[in-house]
Simulated scan of single mutants.
Amino acid sequence: MIQSLVKAANVLEALKDANRELTIAEISEILNIPPSTCHRILSTLINVGYVTKNKRTPLYTLGPALISLGMKASSNIDPGEVEKEVLKKLSDKTMEDAFLIIKSGDKGLVLAKSEGKHSLKIVENFGLEIELHKGAIRKTVLAFQPKEYIDYYLDRDLESYLSESVDREKLRKELEQIREDKISISDSEYIRDAIGIGAPVFNHKSELVGAIGVVVPKERVDEKIKKDYIDAVKSCSIEFSKKLGYSFK
């Protein structure tokens, strides 16, 4: 591994994550490298157009040469391969079936699935369409729709959950919480004795691609296992989004 290249990549990452102009001192502190080293790296990156220095202040930001690189990298991404890889990782981590669900009209559609090793499982088949407010993964898709669409959706005649009718205001607050937490959990909303956990996936344009997650028999879930599943779904959704070029701020 060439350490100078690693340090240069880390400088670019620091500028990207900060989402603002930074001084040499700030970059040095973030990366724990000497200011002199930081200055040499920045000078090189400026020469190739990957970093720009503000002409009026000692501030640095990402340069225009990175735009074409990013566009080229995005064009080489195969979402299908990323999808298979991440869903397989999620099913391996949890040993449960992992799903990718997208919006299809006013319903959520199972687009992809990776089978886990547990023999007792909840059946969700390819092409299965269910109302968006039912189940954690579909509800995640609904939560990240535009406000106008959510208003329209909540004004519809909504199918009841298994054990109760839909409280629209409660659902609206739940969708707001899902947007804030980027995680959703459901309990027996359309499959009896099933726990669902879902999280959103975004692309390089910060657009919602869909949601991934697991649907698990309730008898197999205690609080520790639920936490482990939540962590697994969250981490895989973040990995999926990053691989599609989404930038977390």
Rank of each mutant, 00 (worst) to 15 (best):
K227G: 05
K249T: 10
D92K: 14
N203M: 02
E13R: 10
D155H: 12
K218S: 07
N10E: 10
D157Q: 12
L69P: 06
T140F: 05
R156Q: 15
A136V: 02
R220L: 06
G70Q: 10
R56V: 08
F144Q: 04
G135V: 04
Y161E: 05
L69E: 05
D155P: 06
K224N: 09
Q177T: 13
D92Q: 15
L132Y: 02
V141P: 08
I191R: 14
S4A: 14
K173G: 04
I33C: 02
L154G: 10
T37I: 13
T61Q: 12
Q177D: 13
I197L: 01
K249I: 03
S4I: 13
D222G: 13
V51Y: 08
L59S: 10
N125M: 14
K53S: 13
F126C: 03
K139T: 15
Q177K: 15
L175G: 05
L90F: 01
Q145N: 09
A14K: 03
S91N: 03
I195A: 05
V216G: 08
R192Q: 14
E176P: 01
C236L: 03
A73K: 09
S241F: 03
A136I: 00
I185M: 02
N54F: 02
I122Y: 00
P35Y: 14
V110K: 07
K173H: 07
E180N: 09
Y50S: 15
P217F: 00
V166N: 11
K89G: 04
L90P: 00
Y246N: 10
V209L: 09
L244K: 05
H204M: 05
V110M: 00
K84R: 15
E207R: 13
L111C: 07
D228I: 10
I46D: 11
A211T: 07
S114I: 00
E159Y: 06
A14N: 06
S114Y: 01
N32H: 07
Y161T: 05
L100S: 03
L12S: 00
G127A: 04
K234M: 04
V6G: 05
R40F: 06
D17Y: 08
V166H: 04
S74D: 13
D222E: 13
L12R: 03
L59F: 12
K117R: 15
Q145E: 15
K182Y: 02
K84F: 02
V214C: 08
S104K: 10
